[in-house]
Design a protein around this nucleic acid. Structure first.
Lengths: 167, 167
DNA sequence: TTAAATAGTTAATAATGTTAACTATTTTTA
DNA sequence: TAAAAATAGTTAACATTATTAACTATTTAA
């Protein structure tokens, strides 16, 4: 018999909620001819300060494909494909780094910026609808909780893996 | 210029965290020859009371494929495929419903139960490691937050869709 | 100056998912 | 009660998203 547990409920709910949000995203971004993943790349290139990636480390230069791979937690090869789609759609542009000839920097085109601007009100509308009814303190507690979990997952990889040795 | 916002940070963090957790799950369940999706079906069939699906509605009978599709938010066709894999591995069994001949009920085999039992300590270990350091009140507030968001997404579909008309 | 690391790409492939069309059965409704 | 609609599951064809491995080019470190 499996017991009720707040902790397990939280983790399973996070999973469920992210899943639902992704579905909604897929629906919305389909309207502008994008997938959620493609749109997420645009959001990164827009420099959105609310992305966990930008909270973990500051970025002054335009992003590279490998940084997107790190943030989205997928392979570089996968990012290459996604970027090719966005380049074809002329939503982003790619240019060589002046200092390091291995690197290619990515930037939104005017068309890309316009698209981000267009989808912003709808996105923020949903976000505020979902989070309304909670105090700023409560919201800050949730955010801290999420960020601490994330930090443990990233920085205490060894500890996480030690649990898996039980299997 | 995009502003910092707790609300947007929360939503983007939930996305990020779920993504990381899924990657970890993929790693772990690979060890026992499963994908995260396949394992999630086993978790449903184990009747785990911490699954959001079981909190939303009570289930006395064994689950059907269509109910799994609803809970995982995927098509029935997709569930058919996943179930076939689990049937081949002899982790679950399928039997006809006595009352309604359209329905097929699913249940864990002894092998399936053994596998769930085997992975449980590792899974709970990670979950407790991630959530330690927060008070029960904080954790309860956080769970309530997640459940309210979920409930809005499910029950106020029209409202959510109205935001998308802005695009 | 050689070896290792980093950045990106390509090719082959796996998994995960979709929709549409179909059968069988049950429920609704006219 | 007969016809229509809904539900459950499957199959086939296909799209997307992802992976790894092998490769080139370049930079950094030993």
């Amino acid at each position: 018999m499996i017991n009720k547990s707040i902790e397990e409920s939280i983790v399973l709910s996070i999973f469920d909620l992210a899943n639902q949000l992704k579905k909604i995203g897929d629906d919305v971004y389909l309207k502008v001819g994008l997938t959620t993943q493609q749109w997420l790349i645009l959001l990164h290139l827009s420099g959105n300060p609310n992305l966990p990636f930008f909270k973990r480390e500051k970025h002054v230069k335009d992003l590279m494909a490998s940084e997107l791979a790190e943030s989205l937690n997928v392979s570089r090869a996968n990012i290459t494909n996604l970027i090719n789609v966005l380049l074809e759609k002329k939503l982003i542009k790619q240019f060589e780094d002046g200092q390091d000839r291995r690197k290619k920097r990515l930037r939104l085109t005017k068309k890309g910026i316009a698209l981000i601007d267009k989808t912003q009100p709808s996105r923020l509308g949903v976000i505020h609808f979902l989070t309304e009814g909670f105090s700023t303190e409560q919201k800050q507690t949730f955010l801290t909780f999420l960020e601490e979990c994330m930090s443990k997952l990233i920085n205490e990889d060894d500890k996480i893996k030690s649990f898996h040795k039980l299997i």
